[in-house]
Amino acid sequence: MRNTSVEIGTIAATLFEPDGEPEAVLVVHAATATPAGFYSGFARFLAENRIATVTYDYRGTGRSGSPRAHRHLGMKEWIEQDVPAVTAWAANRHPGLPQLAVGHSLGGHALTLGYGGPDLTAFALVASHVASMGSIPDRVERARVRLLLQVVGPLSAGLLGYVPARRLGLGEDVPAAAIRQWARWSSLPNYLFDDPAMRGAERAATVTQPVLAVGMSDDPWGTPAQVDRLAGYLTGARPERRTWTPAEAGLPRIGHHGFMRRAGRTTLWPNLLTWLQKQL
């Protein structure tokens, strides 16, 4: 297995390739404020199993430029521009191979809206949900998220031009426009599906590929019910559903990010790999 740093326009990416010929190419579309490096273990695992895999940082995050310099970029631009750009690059790098994708949280929203492209063979959604703050069941967590997204985040964005998310415990620093859009969408009952500019329900209905929607029973934000709500927009795809409990995974907890951590290598990842291989 070998990995190579590449540039896709101004997007910094890493390509993980098997030693032999790959049987498919896959792009990992990240969660908000989650650096590409977080997915490197998962990408290596896939490459070791003959799936060439691309990870990348959205513009204005991680290695893809400073958030202050990209203060005008919102989630809409990541979904509508960055996701298709990396998808096209991966397809051109390995022409003729089946194209797969895994979308984590926000990355899954982009795939649900069809921005992974019409040539995808299949894709999986991990902890992707209708991310309305009002749906967070725990009152304390709901209040914490509301404070971060609607008060602290916008205030720091106004002062600095970006959100110092690392210091706030939100992950990677993000551009000002992204936190404002995140705050606005999360205040809506149906998240981005209530934003007419996104044409969410209309676009999701055009997706026809096989889809696996994975949720975790202990995810404080993407509850199984909210994962089901997102999958429900895929009216032309009939997505398969899988909810993991920590006990089934042999882990003390999984949460919103735990599926992609290296602790999932022996239970969670092989299950997803098997599903992907079946689609080939």
Rank of each mutant, 00 (worst) to 15 (best):
V130N: 02
P18M: 08
R144I: 08
S66M: 12
R50W: 08
I8Y: 08
E23M: 12
G41N: 14
D218T: 13
A176V: 09
D19V: 09
L268A: 12
A165S: 15
R242V: 00
E202F: 01
V83N: 06
G169S: 11
G9N: 12
R199K: 12
L168I: 11
L148C: 07
S135P: 01
R59K: 07
I136K: 07
G169F: 14
T267R: 13
N92L: 10
R71W: 10
G60I: 02
T267D: 05
T245K: 04
L155H: 08
P252A: 09
R63I: 03
A131Q: 03
A178F: 12
L212Y: 01
A36L: 14
K278A: 14
H70F: 10
D194W: 13
G258W: 06
Q209W: 00
A85Q: 09
G250M: 07
P154F: 10
R68F: 04
N190A: 05
E77G: 04
P35D: 12
A24K: 02
W78S: 04
H29P: 01
F16W: 12
S135Q: 08
A43L: 05
L15W: 13
G264T: 08
L273D: 05
Q150I: 03
G236N: 04
T223E: 04
S128Q: 03
G41M: 11
S156R: 15
N49I: 04
V163N: 12
V174Y: 14
G37T: 14
L125I: 01
V152A: 14
G134R: 06
A85D: 06
W275I: 08
G171M: 10
D219C: 01
P35T: 11
M1S: 15
Q81N: 12
